[in-house]
Design a protein around this nucleic acid. Structure first.
Lengths: 234, 234
DNA sequence: CGCTAAATTGATCCTCGTCAACACCCGTGG
DNA sequence: CCACGGGTGTTGACGAGGATCAATTTAGCG
């Protein structure tokens, strides 16, 4: 895994891994893609595919917002297995946690740009930061909602229900209506749903046979029976 | 299910269910058990066993803090199955969500006292409320952490790992060191872990045979090999 | 055009869900 | 005091769904 990410504004950023930071400066057009943020003073970062933005246990100095690409947060178990906590699409914020340390790793699924906002947790908030608290609160509540939905998704559901719910969620979150371009691999999906790659693959094939979806290519899903899919995930 | 809960301070509280509010006034000693809260103006409520504090979809007018007893938040699926999102012990806060509506039901597992704090979400915060934002933020981050841990617990783990993790969590959260008094039924545990009551029961029996725990009674667990248990839940 | 990683498909095993019977705990009432 | 009854928990037998191991196909990329 060639883990690299580069700071595109200020260079003073704590890197956990000794990795050569590739100098790749953003274009003006990329800068314009930054969504109207919580704070104005964000720092734009480029993260290479599979590169680690921060790791489990690392000191938490910022939270982040995705500008482009896809980010996953995950946990690595002692048995070597990986569990993915969430996928973050452009516009989504992640990485704000209390306690001074991250409790998950964050990695780019594919090449991504993220904005980092300096923030060290609700305990260490300056009076100036306090003004942002309501907006951070909104983000935290959103994050809690997402985590709760994920827990509900994982609790006692069949493989087909899980995959259908995953696809439904991806459709809802993507701009396009009926075709989803999955940036993540089958392994990523499996680790997110608590399944194996084989089961994910089999389930997708079955959904295709049932004519609920079409798979023009492995990572491209065309939804043909949106209602049926939504009903399956119940 | 005889769903009843009664407001012990002000009577103006929105009840979703047409239920006879039993007049049961708190004792002075119960009042003293209220933990130092986020806000001072909380309203003490009594909730009878299995009574619903609020239901999925209900308008969200308050968040809550457990004074005594045990509260569960849960979701009911269309197939009739129930999933428990979380258990809340004395001192834990719950029920703060954005969007104006609750997305889970809250019920008392056993007789409980909770304090309700008027709050309608981060969108509808008065300047006075804004002062509380940092503390609410801390609570929300705690809630997010809890939900994430729950999702990680449910993702691809064996029944014994799940049960061990559940017991470990209950030990960590209870005051007593090695004996846990479980207020919840096997069904509650099963719905929390995404298992069946039979599997929960079998797993507990197995843990007892392995001498990691002892079960002096069905709801009382004595932990004999705390390290082994913790290692199992990994 | 090959090389490699990713994805699919197949065969088999095992965990856990399901159905069923039974034990236990308590409160009620004879 | 014990019989009865219902709720809760335990245990057993069996089967289905998904994990595992293995082989093959497809896609991506030099």
């Amino acid at each position: 895994m060639s883990a690299t990410f580069s700071v595109l504004s200020e260079p003073a950023f704590s890197m956990r891994r000794a990795v050569p930071a590739k100098a790749s400066w953003m274009s003006a057009s990329a800068a314009e893609k930054i969504p109207a943020g919580v704070a104005s003073g964000g720092q734009l970062l480029h993260v290479a595919p599979d590169a680690e933005l921060y790791s489990d246990g690392a000191e938490s100095v910022s939270f982040y917002k995705v500008v482009s690409g896809l980010v996953r947060t995950c946990k690595f178990r002692s048995d070597g297995r990986r569990q993915i906590d969430a996928f973050y699409l452009p516009g989504d914020a992640f990485g704000f946690e209390d306690g001074g340390r991250h409790r998950l790793s964050a990695e780019a699924v594919c090449e991504a740009y993220v904005v980092a906002y300096r923030w060290r947790g609700s305990e260490a908030m300056s009076p100036a930061d306090a003004a942002l608290a309501p907006q951070l609160l909104s983000l935290a509540l959103q994050g809690m909602r997402r985590a709760q939905d994920h827990a509900l998704l994982l609790g006692r559901r069949s493989a087909s229900q899980k995959v259908a719910a995953f696809l439904t969620d991806m459709i809802d979150r993507s701009v396009n209506d009926d075709v989803v371009e999955l940036a993540m691999s089958r392994q990523d999906i499996a680790d997110y749903l608590g399944l194996t790659i084989e089961t994910v693959s089999r389930t997708l094939s079955q959904l295709e046979r049932d004519e609920m979806i079409a798979l023009p290519s492995a990572r491209r899903v065309r939804v043909q029976d949106r209602l049926g899919l939504r009903h399956l995930s119940s």
